[in-house]
Structures are given as C-alpha cells and as structure tokens.
Design a protein around this nucleic acid. Structure first.
Length: 803
DNA sequence: AGCACGCCGACT
DNA sequence: GTCGGCGTGCTC
C-alpha cells in the first residue's frame, strides 16, 4: 500500500525554508493525523515544531531523504482548514513567511519552546568538575553548563558517551488542571470499612458522608469542609479505595467581577434602520460590509449587541473587535451582561494561560461571542455569522510587525469565507472606508442623532498664542482654568487630555539650548520623575538626570515639556482641593490598574481624570461635563499624510466623552494653530466637511484613498551605507515598476536613527500595479542574497499605518 | 534560524 | 601536530 505523506511548514522563520517539507506519517498515526495538526519533526540535525498543511500519497523527495514525523501534538487540529487558506492569502498579500502567518493565528501558549537537555547515561559516572551541576539529578539544562563555561568538557563527555544531549520541543503554555476527588465507594466496600475497628472515627464519618455522594466529583477542599474532616482523613480513605484523585481540566478565569444581566434597549428609528439592513444581510448570507457611521453617543454599541443577539438566535458566532485594552473593561462588561457565559475576551492584559483558555473556549464551542483586540480576528470559530470592528479607523488594527496585516482586511476575507456581513463602526471613519462607502463598495449606515437626544457638547477653541500675548505662560488657558473652577464648584467631573506624542518631558539647557538625547537614537530622552532618570522610549536606554549640561557644562539645566505628572502638579498649584486621577503608562503598569482607575473615577472619588491617548475612547460616565484638550497641535505636525485625519479623529473622540447623559457637556481645545481645518472642523464635530476637505488634499498630493501606498524602510549602522542602499532601492523600483507609479525618496525616516542604526525610507504610490508584489519580492530576494550580508536591514509594508 | 562541515592561524 | 575561529550551505 502507498504511504501517507504530510506536507509540513516548519517553525523556522526564514525564506530558505518558507515552503512545505514532506514527511512520512507513521502507519499507526494515519487515522489520527489531520490537516492543521501541530507535529514534531526532525529538521536537519534538530527537532522542530511544524504544521500539517497538506496530506498526500506521493512525493518527489527521494525515499532515503524522507523522514518520519516524530510526534503529533494535537488530537484536535490547532488550525482549521480555513486558517490554512487564510495563511496562504496573508503570505501573498502582506509578504510574510507562511510560518509567521500560521503562528499569528494561535495563542502564544501553543508556540514552541525549545530546550536542550543533558542526560546522564545509565551506569556512567561524572567527573568531579561537573558533579555539583548535576547534584542528584539525572538530567540538567544545557544552559546550566553554558553558564559555568563548561562547554568544552561537555563535548568530551558526549564523545565518551557519558552524557547525551537531547533537544526537547514543548509548547509555551499548558492546560491548567486541578486535583479533584471522584467518590467511587460501593456499598460493600464502605460496609467493610465501617465494620472494622471502632477507631478511625473520622474516617467512618467521611465514609458515611461519601455514601450520600456516590459517583460525584468534588474538590478535596469541598469534601473536607462538608464532611467536617481534615485532608489527612480524606487521603486515608482514598488509600482504602473509597475514592480516587483525578485530574480535571479547568479554565483560568480572567473575569474578576460578576455582572448582572441586562435586556435589549429600545432602539431609535435610525438604529432600527441600521439593524434591519444588517439583519437582512445575515438572512441572505451575503458578505456585505457595512460602514456604521454614528456620531459619538449615537448608540452604535446597542446596534452591535442586537445584531449579535440575532447571530446567537441563528446558532452562529460573532467576533467583536475593539481597538485595545482601554475599551475592554467597560465594553466586555456590557457584552457579558447581555450574553453572559457566551462571551470570551482576548486582549493583551491577559496572561498567556488565560489567553489560551479563552481560545480553547472558542475552539471547543463553549462560547459564541469573542470581544477582543486585533488578534481576536483569528478566533477559531467555524460558523461565523457576523464580524464587527468598532472604531474601525484606529491604527491599532494594523499589526506593525510581520505579518503586517490589517484586521479589517482579514475580517473581509473571513466574511467572504462564511458569507456573513461585517460592520465597521466609527464616529470618524478612516478616509479610505468612507470613500469606499461613497463608491458603494461598502454600505453606509448613518446614525446622526444621539441615542438619548442629548445635545452635542459645545466646543470652544482656546488660542494659546493669544494667551501668550496676554502674558499667560502656563499650560492652561484662562477659559480652561475658569471652566475647571466652575466644575469643581458644581461637583461635576472632567477629563483632561494630554496628547503626549512627541511631547513628553525632556531636559533642556537654558544656556545653549541642548536637549539631552539618546546616544543610540535621534530622540530626546524622557524625564521620569519617579525614578529621577532619563529614559529612551524607543530603545530603553536609561541614565541619571545630569546636573550640568553635557554640551556646555552650564548648570542651568532643567525639565521642559508637559508630561502628565507635570500637568498634575500644575493643577494642584491652581486648585489644591482638586482630586486628580492620573492615567498613563506609569499608573497603569500593573494588571487591572486600568479598571481600578476607571472604577474610582466612576464612583465619583475624583474630580479630574488626567490622561493620554488611552482615555480618548469608550469612556462613558454621566457626570463628565468638561473635556479639556491641553495641546491639540502635537499630533498635527507629525510628518505623516494622516496627521490631520488623526488629529480630527482624536479631537472628535475626546469631545464625545462630555455630556453623554442628561447634563450638557463642554469641550475646550487649546491650540497654537486654531485656523487649521482639522481643528476648526472638530469644533462642529462634523465629519463630512472634514472628509471633503481632506479628500481634496489627498487627491492633490496623490495619497490614499486615491492611491495605495507601500513603504520600504532600510537601516544600517553606517549613514553612508544606509543612504547608498536606500538610493539603490529607489533606482531599482523606478526601473522595474511602471511609470504610473510614483516613488518618493529615498528620504530619512522621521526618526533618523534608532538603536544606533540610520534609517531611510522609500514610499511607493500606485493605483493599479499588478507587478507590485512580484517586483517587491524580487527586491527582497536581492536584499536577502546580497544586502543583508552588508548589514542592511530592510522591511516592506504594504499599506503602512504610519510613515 | 540553527547546526555541521570545512578550511586556515596560534598554541602545547 | 591540534584546537578552535567563523564563512558556507543545507534542512523533507
């Protein structure tokens, strides 16, 4: 009979092996093995993990070269056939290795962990030098030898066959098991035990109790508590055979708090219309993409919830993506209170084990809804009825390293696979999305009214140049100070938003103007008050705050810029009675800190919530009546064609935090460029005028959505080398791409040096270029064959989120 | 990516 | 003569 051959993608992330390798499936596993299983295979001189991507009966590989699979790691395949197809699509459309595409779909717990183990052979004795390492053990980790610098000796020991080296392949996380007790005692056994000596009163008691609970599986603790005996008694009884310990799989529970159930809310007419359109698409099983454009507070979430309810009624599954953890506590709570145990969550705040368990709940069909960040788009459902991307314009939906996928694109791919609709929801859609909706590629659904008919907050623009002219050199405009005072008096809450990007505290010499910079990157160091240190946010470099200027030795050196800590201090100077809650990377480090801060604020235990990016979204508290944006400009002047769009989105999002309930809201935006259209139009929170204006500019300079862009980044330790090869890239692209394509560059990247490497980039703008991917692949081939040896590093990003 | 193989300089 | 430096090439 013919043998079974498996095609395996091995866990080695390099282009040389980015193709399936054939392995023989041992006959006894032929009925077990399935597509998508993880397997252990010999690869060259070592063992690696791999994924079965094909099964066949023939191979071109000569039989003397064909090896067999060593082990099957999954009885139930880790990857579905859909995922295998999706991985191929990802590979071709984002230019990545297939193995990376496969890995990204799995929780990190299932990734491989490789360990080298040194085993002492039987009847062999170790020389004295290595005795202390082994102690009484029969095997030790390779690293222990390495640490002691005993590698030459190890080589000798291997040669003499005293020890052997084994490569073990494990996975990073495991199923959590707890010890339970199964009560198996039959009547006879119990009687016999009871009939014995009158001693062992406690055991007798326990046995009697067990008779009432035959066949049950309980935790040891529970049995001891209920029967009123100690653990040692239970162990004694188990010894006699009246019960036995068994290992039971459990899910680690990431939810800390109970939620009460809620019912569907009454929909407004607009919401009803939107829901109806979505429901129709679900009924007709069409892969339709809806753009749900709803102003802040218009009740998009309620539309999602009711659409998902229909999915559940139809016996299907739903994926709900949210931008990042900032949304998840409030958002997941809302989902759990509506759908209870049917919900799994997936975000970066979970431990490896928790993520694995949530993933298994999805895989085993124990839940029907997943609420999660970007990677949840790969949730292993097999009957998806609806996919939702909330705040679809968020750049966190784009993964910044390989595979550089956009969750929106994956969502569309999966919706076509399952013939189900997608909802892209936003108050400020990405220009690309709105343009597609206007063209009819997406179906536009609009919510123009706030759900509770509250008025939109009034937005006031504070011209900081004017403030400066009037001698106000503080970071607060007069109007903002006044507004804060009023809120404090009225005992209402407020949110102050600091757009910190590129504007954190730095150290500047007042004599020569030197800003202390990172020695490895062209970035100024950020001052951290808590540790009295200067830190580089890009490479992690740290140093103590200098007492004198490193340039001119002056001692007139001081801190500038506005970190959240600085703002907090300023607030206390002006309003000593104010209770400020600061939410930034420093205060949200530990697990659950996010939730704690929001809860404290929600409970009214603070007047002012002060924070960065992370408070811009989702926050929904009735008592917030003022939102202050301390500096709207910081994101406006970044060298990125999306800077204006980002600023408009951000301002609209933060403004939406005010006056969501019965109290009217007010927003104060401080800026040095009040005449900029992104700021002027944020004032009226009117998306379409902004869209028209921005589209005009995009068309004029040939940027998306009119053109597609691809970004090639290149770095080298030596400036000249980096510049030279960046030039070669540009020349080569100009030669090989059609003249319809614009190639911008080479230019220095916005951070010209990072981790001691000089960075250049080329931008490709194109409309239709069928050759683009093949040409880029040839460029990459050239890079891998020659340039990489020169120390060049190059990356290609189709559809970059920042440039 | 690892790991082995292989071909050249400084040591016992 | 040998140990070990890291260039080159392969992995079903």
């Amino acid at each position: 009979m013919s043998i079974l051959i498996a095609e395996v993608i091995v866990d080695v992330s390099t282009y040389h092996v980015d193709r399936p390798f054939d392995y023989q499936v041992p006959p006894e596993w032929e009925s077990v093995i399935e597509l998508g299983c993880r397997v252990k295979v010999p690869f060259g001189p070592r063992n690696v993990l791999g994924f079965i991507v094909g099964l066949k009966h023939e191979t071109d590989v000569p039989l003397n070269k064909l090896k067999g699979i060593t082990q099957i790691l999954d009885m139930e395949p880790a990857l579905t056939e859909e995922m295998l197809q999706m991985a191929k699509w990802l590979k071709n459309n984002t230019i990545c290795y297939e193995i990376d595409a496969l890995q990204v779909m799995l929780p990190s717990a299932l990734r491989a962990k490789y360990e080298k183990i040194i085993k002492l052979q039987k009847n062999q004795t170790l020389p004295e030098e290595v005795q202390p390492i082994f102690g009484k053990r029969q095997q030790v980790n390779f690293k222990e030898f390495e640490r002691e610098g005993l590698l030459p000796l190890l080589k000798q020991l291997v040669a003499e066959n005293i020890v052997t080296i084994e490569n073990v392949v494990k996975q990073q996380g495991n199923v959590k098991e707890i010890r339970m007790v199964q009560i198996t005692a039959d009547q006879q056994l119990v009687e016999r035990a009871l009939g014995q000596s009158s001693r062992a009163v406690k055991q007798r008691l326990l046995l009697q109790w067990m008779c009432q609970h035959l066949g049950e599986i309980l935790s040891p603790q529970q049995i001891c508590d209920e029967a009123g005996v100690s653990l040692s008694v239970l162990e004694a009884v188990i010894d006699k055979g009246a019960a036995q310990f068994i290992q039971e799989e459990v899910f680690r529970d990431p939810f800390t708090k109970e939620v009460s159930r809620t019912q569907a809310l009454q929909l407004t007419d607009e919401q009803q219309v939107a829901l109806q359109a979505i429901n129709t698409a679900m009924e007709q099983q069409t892969a339709e993409t809806f753009l749900l454009h709803g102003i802040t507070g218009s009740g998009k979430t309620e539309v999602y919830l009711q659409a998902i309810q229909k999915v559940l009624n139809d016996g299907k599954e739903a994926i709900m993506l949210v931008p990042e953890i900032s949304l998840t506590p409030q958002m997941t709570e809302r989902f759990r209170s509506r759908f209870g145990e049917m919900v799994a969550v997936m975000h970066s705040g979970l431990s490896v084990g928790e993520k694995y368990d949530e993933w298994r709940k999805i895989q085993q069909g124990k839940v029907k809804v997943v609420v999660g960040a970007r990677s949840a788009i790969f949730a292993p459902f097999t009957n998806i009825g609806l996919i939702i991307l909330d705040e679809e314009h968020e750049s966190t939906y784009k993964q910044e390293d390989s595979p550089r996928y956009h969750a929106r694109d994956v969502a569309i791919w999966r919706s076509e696979f399952y013939k189900c609709p997608i909802i892209l929801g936003s108050a400020t859609p990405a220009l690309e999305s709105f343009a597609r909706a206007k063209k009819g590629v997406y179906t536009l659904l609009s919510l123009k009214q706030r759900a509770l008919h509250q008025a939109l907050p009034t937005v006031y623009i504070a011209d900081m140049r004017e403030e400066l002219r009037q001698g106000n050199r503080s970071m607060f405009s007069q109007s903002l100070i006044e507004a804060i005072r009023v809120r404090l008096e009225k005992k209402e809450q407020m949110v102050l938003f600091l757009n910190r990007r590129g504007y954190s505290s730095f150290v500047l010499c007042r004599d020569c103007g030197t800003v202390v910079q990172c020695p490895n990157c062209d970035i100024s160091l950020t001052y951290h008050r808590t540790t009295e240190k200067l830190k580089c946010h890009y490479c992690g470099y740290e140093e103590h705050v200098p007492q004198i200027c490193p340039q001119c030795q002056s001692d007139h050196i001081r801190y500038f810029g506005t970190g959240t800590q600085k703002v907090e201090e300023e607030i206390y100077k002006l309003f000593p009675e104010a209770r400020v809650l600061r939410m930034d990377v420093d205060t949200t480090k530990h697990k659950g800190a996010h939730e704690e801060i929001l809860e404290t604020f929600g409970a009214g235990q603070a007047d002012i919530l002060l924070g960065t990016q992370m408070i811009a979204k989702g926050l929904d508290f009735p008592n917030i009546t003022l939102v202050g944006v301390l500096s709207a400009d910081t994101s406006l002047h970044l060298p990125d064609y999306r800077a204006a769009e980002r600023t408009f989105q951000l301002l609209t999002q933060v403004s939406g935090r005010a006056g969501r309930h019965d109290k009217p809201g007010e927003v104060i935006i401080q800026t040095y460029t009040p005449e900029h259209y992104a700021i002027e139009l944020a004032k009226t929170q009117d998306y379409e005028p902004f869209y028209e204006r921005e589209m005009f500019l995009r068309r004029r300079s040939s940027y998306p959505p009119y053109y597609f862009v691809a970004l090639i980044q290149l770095s080298h330790e030596d400036v000249m080398m980096a510049a030279e090869y960046a030039g070669r890239v540009a020349d080569w692209l100009r030669e090989n791409l059609s003249n319809q394509v614009a190639i911008i560059g080479p230019t220095t990247a916005s951070i010209a040096r990072l981790q001691n490497r000089y960075r250049y980039q080329c931008l490709i703008k194109y409309k239709i270029e069928p050759n683009l991917i093949p040409v880029l692949q040839r460029l990459l081939a050239m890079y891998r064959a020659e340039w990489i040896k020169q120390g060049i590093l190059m990356t290609v990003d189709l559809d970059p989120s920042t440039i």
